[in-house]
Simulated scan of single mutants.
Amino acid sequence: MQTAQPKTFPARTLSFAACLLIATASFTGQAQEATHMAPVDAYLMDRTAEINLARSAAPPSIAKDATVLVLTRKGYETAVKGTNGFVCYVGRGFGGAPDWPERWDPKIKAAACDNPSAAPTMTALLKLRTAMTLAGKTDAEVMDRIKTALRTREIPPLAAGAICYMMSKNAYLSAQGDHNMAHLMFYVPEKDGTTWGANLPGSPVIGGNYWYLMPGHEAEAAALPPISVFLVATSTFSDGSPVSPHAM
Score class of each variant (00 low, 15 high):
Leu53Ser: 11
Thr194Ile: 06
Asp99Tyr: 04
Met248Val: 13
Ala159Pro: 01
Tyr89Pro: 00
Asp65Ala: 14
Asp105Lys: 05
Tyr210Leu: 15
Asn209Ala: 07
Pro10Met: 03
Gly93Ile: 02
Ala17Val: 06
Lys169Ile: 05
Pro39Gly: 01
Trp196Glu: 02
Leu53Thr: 12
Ala54Ile: 10
Ile206Asp: 03
Ala63Tyr: 01
Thr72Gln: 02
Glu33Arg: 15
Ile155Ser: 12
Ile155Cys: 04
Glu218Gly: 06
Phe27Arg: 12
His36Lys: 14
Phe186Gln: 12
Ala17Asn: 10
Glu77Cys: 02
Met1Arg: 14
Asp192Gln: 13
Cys164Asp: 07
Ala182Lys: 04
Asn209Arg: 15
Met132Phe: 00
Pro59Gly: 08
Arg129Asn: 14
Glu218Lys: 01
Pro39Cys: 05
Ser15Glu: 07
Gln32Arg: 13
Arg145Trp: 03
Ile108His: 00
Tyr76Ala: 08
Val40Lys: 15
Glu141His: 05
Ala38Lys: 14
Gly193Trp: 05
Pro101Gly: 07
Gly207Asp: 08
Asp99Leu: 00
Leu224Val: 05
Phe86His: 15
Ala119Ile: 03
His183Asp: 06
Leu53Lys: 09
Val232Met: 14
Tyr172Phe: 15
Gly240Arg: 05
Ile206Ser: 03
Glu102Phe: 06
Thr48Val: 05
Ser244Gln: 06
Tyr187Asn: 03
Ile62His: 07
Thr234Gly: 03
Trp104Gln: 05
Asn209Gln: 10
Ala66Trp: 08
Arg153Glu: 13
Pro226Gly: 03
Lys169Tyr: 08
Gly95Gln: 06
Glu218Arg: 00
Thr24Trp: 13
Leu213Phe: 00
Ser56Asn: 10
Ala233Gly: 11
Pro157Thr: 09
Ser228Ala: 14
Ala4Met: 01
Ile163Leu: 13
Glu77Met: 05
Thr234Glu: 07
Phe9Lys: 14
Tyr187Ser: 11
Met167Gln: 15
Glu77Thr: 15
Leu20Pro: 04
Met167Trp: 02
Asn199Ala: 08
Pro156Asn: 05
Thr138Val: 07
His183Gln: 09
Asp178Met: 07
Tyr210Asn: 13
Ser241Tyr: 04
Thr13Ser: 13
Asn209Lys: 15
Lys109Pro: 00
Ala182Gln: 06
Thr78Pro: 02
Cys19Phe: 09
Pro6Ala: 12
Val80His: 00
Ala63Arg: 04
Ile227Ser: 05
Asn170Ser: 14
Met181Phe: 11
Glu190Met: 14
Thr72Val: 07
Val40Arg: 15
Gln32Ser: 09
Pro225Lys: 09
Met185Pro: 00
Pro156Gly: 02
Ala58His: 04
Val68Thr: 14
Asp46Phe: 04
Gly197Trp: 04
Cys164Lys: 11
Lys7Tyr: 01
Pro120Val: 06
Ser117Gln: 15
Asp65Cys: 00
Thr83Asp: 03
Ile206Phe: 05
Thr195Gln: 11
Pro204Met: 11
Gly208Gln: 08
Thr83Gln: 09
Pro60Trp: 09
Val232Arg: 09
Gly193Thr: 06
Thr8Val: 14
Leu14Gln: 11
Ala34Val: 07
Thr72Asp: 02
Ala17Trp: 03
Lys137Tyr: 02
Thr35Leu: 15
Val90Trp: 01
Ala18Gln: 12
Ala159Phe: 01
Thr78Met: 10
Ala219Pro: 03
Ser15Met: 07
Phe9Trp: 11
Lys7Gln: 13
